[in-house]
Design a binder for these strands. Structure first.
Lengths: 204, 204
DNA sequence: TAGATATTCAACACGGAGTTGATTATCTGT
DNA sequence: ACAGATAATCAACTCCGTGTTGAATATCTA
């Protein structure tokens, strides 16, 4: 029972969400007010407070939704591939799926990444990476004791790098295909940034 | 003439800056008001508006100052080393200096990186990297035509990755020394994240 | 020390935030 | 299609931070 949500709620939430995104694109999250949102959404201002505490709460909930989506993409794949986790085939397909998701939801992603949604998402991804790489270490080809640098920095490095590239891609209008982006990203990660820059690893 | 700044201005600006940082640490930038700042700084609220348009302007100016510092560290070194730009000696010393700066200004950096100062700084760094790596390409060992991935993504990757590691380091209380951090960071960048993870580059 | 200027102070208008209670509109389940 | 539930509207109100002003005061510089 009660798995269905009242259509009125769905409608207003959708309208609010859309208004939020367009306003973030237009004037940035800082500059927008609850009044702005409800005006653009053609919603009574009081109605907003029936669903959200304030604009920050709205942002948080939007963020959580996106975070859940991302998490699901990661889980869906890591679940399948107990065996195929070798030789970089897995990460490539993960990353490609993620890029496809980002492209499909480009406006929301752009809006969120322009706020501190960045931080929140990155923190969550780092947690997920840690969990899946080190704890239930199905990825048998990575072992914490083999690391040549502290694990927390390695994870931060990779997570932040990937987000940076995603952001650049979104800002540039998603010109490359998700598959191309996945290739680029895994290429840099697997071969190393300097190798990707056309240099054979120098001795330093 | 007039190279000296009125001491009253210096004092109030310093107080405002300090109040800003402590308040960001305490409740975050979103939640703080101009009233909060002036109260903590023991400053009349009207005085604030003599120097800043609003709290965002204050943040921007603080940000610009830090950005200038970073820029100067980068320039100071790249200026010296026309010859020694080979074999990774240069980047290591750059990065170490930067970490030292971050540690010395940890509270401000923490506060700024918790806001969208992150974005601003990252954008500026990317611009600087682009300029120094590709345009006046003194770094003769990197050539745009040799790149195996698009330059904008490579730069985004590296810049974001470095910021991610800096953030992790600051959040963890700067336990490693700047030298250690510089080693870790250049190690991952030169050898590649997966190599740093203890894997010999897999074929994918 | 004199003149300049930064700071203080009190007061003001303005606008968005968040809440409330009554009314109306719309949905859900049968 | 209907009745009951509940979501949205509307108007009104309080609260609080904002940004500005003009006059008085304090502090700096030269």
């Amino acid at each position: 029972m009660s798995e269905t949500v009242d259509r009125r709620i769905t409608r207003t939430k959708r309208a609010i969400r859309a208004a939020l995104v367009s306003l973030i694109e237009e004037k940035g999250f800082d500059a927008l007010s609850v009044k702005d949102i409800t005006a653009r959404a053609n919603i009574n201002r009081g109605t907003f407070y029936l669903h959200y505490k304030d604009k920050f709460d709205l942002l948080d909930q939007t963020l959580e939704e996106v975070a859940r989506d991302i998490e699901n993409i990661l889980l869906e794949i890591t679940a399948l591939s107990g065996i195929d986790v070798v030789k970089g085939k897995l990460p490539l397909s993960i990353v490609e799926k993620l890029f496809a998701y980002f492209k499909a939801n480009a406006p929301v992603m752009q809006a969120l990444l322009a706020t501190k949604g960045n931080h929140a998402l990155q923190a969550q991804i780092k947690k997920t990476m840690w969990h899946h790489v080190f704890e239930k270490n199905r990825a048998t080809f990575i072992k914490k004791e083999n690391l040549l640098v502290p694990p927390e920095y390695l994870i931060s490095y990779i997570a932040a790098a990937h987000f940076g590239v995603v952001q650049e891609w979104l800002d540039g209008g998603c010109r490359e295909t998700p598959a191309e982006m996945a290739r680029i990203l895994t290429y840099i990660t697997f071969r190393g940034p300097l190798f990707a820059a056309g240099i054979s690893s120098p001795n330093f």
